[in-house]
Structures are given as structure tokens and as C-alpha cells.
């Protein structure tokens, strides 16, 4: 299908202009048409994300900070016992996940990495996906990369998983028979009912979503989109979701991490 133009040239210009002002570099915008989901939100939601005191995702980061310093498991160690001050040691870490895990011969996402440490190093039970604890730690670690560029590892072992992710992204699915690409590449900027369709960049996760009334992961977002097209969602931490996450991180290479973002 030929790429269709938005019929809202006015608002497109306005948001492009705003993006230019924000970056102070019109040329960078001209070269890079990628936009965070932030750019598609109304001013109130944007203000909520920008103000740490109003951003409810910060509460999850605080949960995570407490857990970071709390001894757990048979080892009696906290994350801090091994990694020290997260503001230094975790800087840039979320910006380069999923990463290849040699013991698995496969990539792991950040939530999976945290559980490898829980089980292997702390000798504590894995944190259930999407639990307050798991989201808290991932948010706190993600926050340490705020403002840094997404920088996927340059690791050839990841290539087949990147390809798998790309194939999933372009695979039509569900009773309504949509691919991710049909919405997020071909129709980004359009409106599905009231909702502006963003470009599906993973820049803000975990993030606070007003509709969830909670902070949630990128994979929770994937599950929502799959349910929307009436498909059977993959499960949390599945190889399919890790591959999709890997593909989206590669696609967003160089974009700034926003964790914890806010979305409607």
C-alpha cells in the first residue's frame, strides 16, 4: 500500500516545529522522521511526564530503589552489594537490552536479566513478570539511562533474533488480520478512532499508562496491541516478545530513553 499522507497538515507542521525547537537542531529532525510516542500526546500528559513530582511512574522507580538496596534470598545480599550505586553502575544498561546471554544461547530482556541475578546471585525466587517488584526494579534501572541514546549491542549472535523480531513485526495476525507494521509504519500519525497511532518506539518503558492505572512493561503494551487485533498474545518473557523487543530497540537506535514515561 502506498504510504498515505496525514490529512492534518496543520497539526503535523506544528508538532514538527515543536520538535525542532525542543532539539534546537532543525537539520537533525529533517534527517530523522522518528518520533517518540511522547510527540503524539496531548499537552497535559506531556506535562505529567516531564514533571517528576507529577509523574506516577516515579513511584515505581522509588519502589525499585528500595529493592535495589534490600538484602534478599539465601545470599543475604542486595543488588547494591554487588553493583554498588545504581546511578553509576546502571547508567546506560537499559539502553542496550535485550542482550545476548551465553548460558541461554539466546537474548534476555532486562526483566529476564534481573531474574538471573535474583536466582543465581541472590539465591532468591524470580520476581513474577509485571509484579510491583519486577516493574519497580526495571523502572529504577531504566531511569539510570534517562536521556541516553538507545544503543543496541553490536553483537552478530543477535542477528537471527533481530530477523525473527522483524518477521513478527510484519506478520499479519488475529481475527482482524493486522501486522504491527501496518499500524505503526504505514499508518503512524493517523487516528484509530480517538487514538493517534504512534510509531511504536520502546523509549519510555516501563511507563505509567493512565489506562492501566499502573506502571507496566513494553511486553504488556505488546499484549494490548495483540488483543486489539483479536490475536492470542504471546506470553511475558517468551522468545517471540524478546525478539520483538530486540527489533524495536534496533529500530529506535539513537533515540533517547525516557523511562519512566507517561502514556494515555
Amino acid at each position: 500500500m502506498a504510504r498515505r499522507r496525514s490529512r492534518r497538515p496543520g497539526s503535523m507542521w506544528r508538532s514538527t516545529l515543536l520538535a525542532c525547537l525542543a532539539l534546537g537542531a532543525a537539520s537533525a529532525v529533517a534527517q530523522d522522521a522518528r518520533k517518540s510516542g511522547f510527540a503524539y500526546m496531548g499537552p497535559d500528559t506531556q506535562a505529567m511526564q516531564k514533571d517528576d513530582l507529577a509523574n506516577p511512574g516515579m513511584l515505581s522507580a522509588l519502589d525499585g530503589e528500595a529493592l535495589w538496596n534490600a538484602p534478599a534470598g539465601a545470599s543475604g545480599k542486595s543488588c547494591a552489594s554487588c553493583h554498588g550505586d545504581a546511578t553509576a553502575s546502571m547508567k546506560g544498561v537499559a539502553a542496550r537490552y535485550p542482550a545476548y546471554e551465553a548460558t541461554h544461547n539466546a537474548p534476555v530482556d532486562l526483566a529476564g536479566r534481573i531474574n538471573l541475578c535474583r536466582e543465581g546471585n541472590q539465591q532468591a525466587p524470580a520476581l513474577p513478570r509485571e509484579s510491583r517488584e519486577a516493574i519497580g526494579l526495571a523502572t529504577y534501572i531504566g531511569q539510570q539511562s534517562r536521556g541516553l541514546s538507545i544503543a543496541p549491542p553490536d553483537d552478530p549472535r543477535l542477528t537471527p533474533f533481530h530477523e525473527q523480531g522483524k518477521a513478527l513485526y510484519t506478520q499479519r495476525m488475529g481475527q482482524l488480520n493486522f501486522s504491527c507494521a501496518q499500524c505503526h509504519d504505514e499508518n503512524a500519525g493517523g487516528h484509530l478512532g480517538a487514538a493517534p497511532i504512534p510509531q511504536a518506539h520502546p523509549t519510555g518503558y516501563p511507563l505509567y499508562r493512565l489506562e492501566w492505572q499502573a506502571t507496566g512493561s513494553l511486553q504488556r503494551r505488546f499484549r494490548n496491541c495483540m488483543a486489539g487485533v483479536r490475536a492470542e498474545p504471546y506470553s511475558y518473557g517468551s522468545p517471540e516478545f524478546i525478539a520483538l523487543e530486540l527489533y524495536l530497540m534496533d529500530r529506535a537506535k539513537g533515540m533517547a530513553v525516557e523511562t519512566p514515561a507517561v502514556r494515555p
Binding site: 495476525m173 481475527q175 488480520n177 483479536r230 490475536a231 492470542e232
Partner: peptide, 25 residues
Amino acid sequence: QTIMPAYYRVDGLTRVAPALRGKPV
């Protein structure tokens, strides 16, 4: 290439939610 769902079709679809398999929209 259309994005419009087929409203009366049940074959050739992928990973349809279990409760809806075999049912047209």
C-alpha cells in the same frame, strides 16, 4: 494490502484468539 479486516472470512489467519477461531467478524 488493505488494512480493512475481512468481515466474512475464517481461513488463512494467524494466531486468532482461541475464543474467536473459526468465527467471522
